[in-house]
Design a binder for these strands. Structure first.
Lengths: 147, 147
DNA sequence: AAGCGAATGAGAACCATTCTCATTCCAAAT
DNA sequence: ATTTGGAATGAGAATGGTTCTCATTCGCTT
């Protein structure tokens, strides 16, 4: 399993390879995301870093990290941006969203099933003349706490 | 295959069963979405209806249709809301987004593969103690025109 | 130690979306 | 036909997440 230091080092290398600095704010955001179990909004992160990063800087930090592909953005159902470490840092995974409480959490689909999903994705691409480079599976349902 | 009139009638029934009227603006938006091959933004729809519906009314129309579950909203990668007819009107389907041109189109995954996807979704739910009620598969890649 | 491009922070600006409210429409009852 | 009350409409203001501006500060590199 990937350790926190590996993530930080990998992210730092990525930033430096794109001539961007590995600054305290960037490091703090990466560490915070690394400790989260699902995608976080800018507001979530502002709380998590306890005001250590002003909003304008936080947003700028997020766009730098997104442009350098250290993190990925996916808007939630309301259209609010949520961020996660990029898959090359976390490993490929999917999301489960509870329709009761709205919480989204990561799911690493077991290898046997994931292989089938990937196969289906490329098979569908083949049938529709579309070169598939990635896929994302979102599950909606009710989490154990809400049930 | 579902005909346009079926869609309109079904949508009308749904609206009326929720004590909402089947007004010209609502009908026009439904017809426009029925004639689209992928999710449309409010701005797209404003163009498509050629100014026949002012923005404030268009947005209100969209929220009524969303609340009555005639349409579904999914924000695109930029967080801008895009709308489609709900799956009970169109049939279950997924999306393919071209990473070159950004276009998103609908894909009806062939029945054999779709059944497998559904099985995997519930199997994953079982393993993670999550009651799956729906799923969505998004394919990223390059469309035939961009390749 | 100096120079210089990058990063920061405060605040203004943006813009998709929602809200307000006065007006108009429609359906049902008279 | 007419009235009536709730629903829908449209114009414009307000909201709020996000981005931009710009003056200041930081941190490499020489």
């Amino acid at each position: 399993m990937r350790q926190r230091n590996d993530t930080l080092t990998a992210a730092r290398n990525r930033l430096e390879s794109k001539q961007a600095r590995f600054t305290p704010a960037r490091r703090l955001v990466i560490e915070t995301l690394d400790g989260s179990s699902g995608p976080q909004s800018a507001a979530d992160l502002a709380v998590a870093v306890a005001g250590a990063i002003p909003m304008s800087s936080l947003y700028r930090t997020l766009s730098v990290l997104e442009e350098t592909e250290v993190i990925e953005r996916f808007p939630d159902q309301a259209g609010i941006a949520r961020y996660e470490l990029a898959e090359w840092l976390t490993g490929h995974h999917h999301h489960m969203t509870c329709i009761e409480c709205g919480a989204t959490s990561d799911v690493a689909v077991p290898g046997d099933l994931e292989a089938t999903v990937a196969d289906i994705a490329s098979e569908v691409g083949r049938r529709f003349d579309f070169t598939v480079t990635g896929h994302r599976l979102d599950l909606q349902g009710v989490c154990s706490q809400c049930r």
